[in-house]
Amino acid sequence: MNTKNHIKTVTGKTLKQTAEKGGCGKCRASCQSACKTSCTVANQPCEANQENA
């Protein structure tokens, strides 16, 4: 079923897919506390993806 009227998927990319080539450590460090420019890691870009783009 491709067309849906009641629910639209905004992102269907699964986390498991990201594990296959993940863990390279190229991404920047982030701080999870409130005292630096903290963020959720979910707004960290994947730098390996950016290199390959």
Binding site: T11, T18, A19, C27, Q32, V41, A42, N43, Q44, P45
Partner: peptide, 26 residues
């Protein structure tokens, strides 16, 4: 900054398991 979230890309799940990496890589 706090209303930014990358739904289509972003960090891999390995990175998301422990966030900042303090005491280890930071």
């Amino acid at each position: 900054f706090h209303f930014n979230v990358d739904l289509s890309g972003g960090a891999c799940v390995i990175r998301r398991l422990r966030g900042c990496g303090c005491g280890n890589e930071y």
